Amino acid sequence: MANKILITDDTAFMRMTLKNILQKNGYEIAGEAEDGLQAVEKYKTEQPDLVTMDITMPNMDGISAIKEIMSYDAKAKIIVCSAMGQKSLVIEALSSGAKDFIVKPFQPDRILDAVKKVLG
């Protein structure tokens, strides 16, 4: 069975880009979220195997969403995918429970390597 992935990004273009890369490589898209609030809700309903998470989003940012998801499911697998490559944000995301941090713009191979590594 294909691994289900929830894509979280406030930009439709970025969600579509990630979706295309992942679907072409045999992953199932569990859903898409435009902000952290939607990501937390969809995580609870869809129970994806992995979440891609942007940091800067309206309503609830990615770091807050990571903390919410991790408090709901300590085994959650989250990869941050953000243009915000500041070291402090990377450290905060990883210490909040994210398994990897990819800086946009990214190469498709970087996404696939991270997803394969995190899903084991």
Rank of each mutant, 00 (worst) to 15 (best):
I63E: 00
D113N: 15
Q38M: 10
M16S: 13
D49Q: 07
A65Y: 08
Q38P: 04
K42C: 00
L89Y: 15
G31A: 04
K19T: 09
S64W: 02
L119S: 03
C81D: 07
D100K: 14
V90M: 13
M1S: 15
K104P: 08
G26R: 08
S71K: 13
E32V: 11
P58A: 06
G62M: 11
L112R: 07
N59K: 15
A33R: 06
S71Q: 12
K77T: 02
Y27T: 01
Q38A: 01
K19L: 00
A33Y: 10
S96K: 01
D100R: 03
Q107L: 12
T52L: 01
L94A: 01
Q47H: 08
K19N: 10
F101K: 08
A12G: 11
A76E: 03
K99E: 00
F106W: 12
A93P: 06
K42L: 13
A74F: 11
L18E: 06
S95H: 12
A98M: 04
A12L: 14
Y43A: 05
K44E: 04
T17N: 12
I5C: 00
I63P: 05
S96L: 05
Q86L: 05
P105Y: 07
V103C: 12
D109E: 09
L22Q: 05
D10T: 12
G85E: 08
R15V: 10
A83Y: 09
D100T: 06
L89W: 10
E92I: 14
C81A: 15
I63M: 01
M84S: 11
T8A: 01
S64H: 10
T11N: 02
K42Y: 11
K19V: 01
T11W: 03
A39Y: 04
E32F: 11
F106C: 07
N20K: 15
D54K: 07
E32M: 14
Q23H: 03
A2T: 08
D73H: 09
T8Y: 08
G120P: 10
A74T: 14
M70S: 08
I21T: 08
Q47M: 12
R110A: 11
S96W: 14
D9F: 01
A39K: 10
E41A: 04
D49W: 01
L112K: 03
I102F: 08
K104Y: 06
I5L: 07
E28M: 06
I5D: 00
M16K: 15
Q107I: 08
K75C: 03
G97P: 09
D54G: 12
V118E: 04
Q107G: 04
F13R: 12
S82H: 13
I78M: 04
K67E: 09
I91W: 13
G31H: 11
S64F: 10
E68T: 00
K19A: 11
